[in-house]
Structures are given as C-alpha cells and as structure tokens.
C-alpha cells in the first residue's frame, strides 16, 4: 500500500532552528551563520571584528570545528564569549548542536552572535540553525568558479565576503568573474572585498553588520 507523506526531510532541524530563533529574538540578538571552505578566514574575520566592535556592539561566537578548541581560544583573547562545538566527523553544524551551546552563553549580554560553521562549502548550507542571515567567505586562493560548482551556499547567503585580496596579484583569481558567477546564482547577494591581514574593506563589513543589527532591533518589539 502506498501512503502519501509529502514532508520535508529536514523538518526536525527546521523546528529546532525556529526554537533557537525565538530565543535569539527574545534576547535581542542578531545571528549570523558564517560559512566558508576551511582556511578562508572565518576566525580571522571574527578576531578583527571583535577588535573593531569592542565598546560598540557585544559579540558572541559559537564555533564548530572537527578538531580542538583552538578557534574559540583565538576569539576569547578579545574578551568575546566563544563556545566551541567539536563536531567529530560531522561536516556542518545543525540547529540541535547550536542549541546545545546556548545554555553556556549569556544571550542577554550579546548583541551579535556569529556561528562559525565547519569549514566546508557544501553541507553547512543545508541546515538552518536559527540565523537571521547566512553569510560566507570566499578567499582568492580558492578559485573564481566556486559559485558555479557549489551553488547552494551562494544562493542562500545574503553577503559574500571576498577575503585575502592582498594575495590577488599572486593568484589567477578574477574578481569580476567571481562576482558575476555569484550573482548568476543569487542576483541579490551583497559582495564586499576584504583583507583580514591588511584590514582592507573591514569598514564596509562593519557597516553591513551594524546596519543589519539596527534593522533587526527596529523590527523587534521594545523590551
């Protein structure tokens, strides 16, 4: 006998993500799900962001890594609460893993919570964790055709940061090509070129961050 099911495979994850999202709104947190390949510069971006935001917006971080607590240690140096989730063999963070980190954070003392996802261009894009926006980093050492080969992440992201532009002259990465490819997949994607080591473009990134924080606070009912 055939029975009709018509259910989303990831509905269990989506339900937990909705719970997380409710908690984030209650605590007035803007939440970003930060994704990239391994080594594209996620932790470096968070270090810089912590430095610039100090005294302005309170940052918090949940970081997923297959290995140890190294990334959380790097971020904690900036007096930013950082919870590391060691994912073992899992190649992404899901809503449940993020939920398990939340009791360890004082959410009401955080303005912007960034979830540094596991380095991987495929799997993290599949799972919502309760974020307001997915954002991603593509570094110039990776290749400008990446958007076409791994379209889902580019389609789901509100913002693409192109990092390591200080290395541009040593690579055959074509900036215009990379942007055009990303826009083919996602015409409304915003793009900012940055260098975490040189500091280039970080003001534009911080502007994006503060504008989107303000936007969310404006729509939330006042405490």
């Amino acid at each position: 006998m055939k029975i009709n099911v018509m259910q989303d495979v990831l509905q269990a994850n989506d339900r937990i993500a909705e719970e997380n999202k409710r908690l984030f709104s209650e605590n007035r947190n803007l939440v970003l799900n930060l994704m990239s390949s391994p080594g594209a510069g996620k932790t470096s971006l968070l270090e810089k962001t912590a430095e610039i935001l100090a005294g302005k917006l309170r940052l918090g971080v949940v970081v997923g890594d297959i290995e140890t607590t190294r990334d959380a240690d790097r971020i904690s140096k900036f007096n930013v609460p950082a919870i590391q989730l060691t994912t073992g063999t899992a190649c992404h963070l899901d809503a449940n893993m993020v939920a398990s980190a939340l009791p360890h954070l004082q959410l009401d003392k955080i303005d912007v919570l960034v979830v540094e996802n596991v380095g991987n261009l495929v799997c993290p894009a599949e799972f919502v964790v309760g974020e307001d926006y997915k954002i991603m980093i593509l570094s110039v050492t990776e290749g400008d055709e990446k958007p076409l080969k791994y379209p889902l992440m580019f389609k789901e992201s509100a913002l693409m940061l192109i990092n390591k532009i200080d290395l541009l002259e040593y690579t055959n990465f074509n900036l215009e090509e990379a942007k055009a490819n990303a826009r083919k997949i996602n015409p409304s994607i915003e793009i900012i070129e940055i260098s975490c080591t040189k500091g280039t473009g970080l003001d534009a990134w911080i502007n994006w961050l503060t504008a989107h924080h303000k936007k969310k606070m404006d729509v939330l009912p006042h405490a």
């Binding site: 029975i3 009709n4 259910q7 389609k155």
Partner: peptide, 20 residues
C-alpha cells in the same frame, strides 16, 4: 539574460512510501 531567478532544485522531500 543573467537576470534569472532559481525556481527549482533545492527541494528535499519524502513524496510517499510503500508499506505492508
């Protein structure tokens, strides 16, 4: 034109099952 919208290809759904 490159001004296109992706309208399908992200679905992941169980349509039906056969049981005994």
């Amino acid at each position: 034109s490159t001004r296109i919208q992706i309208t399908g290809g992200t679905e992941l759904r169980i349509k039906d099952i056969e049981i005994e």
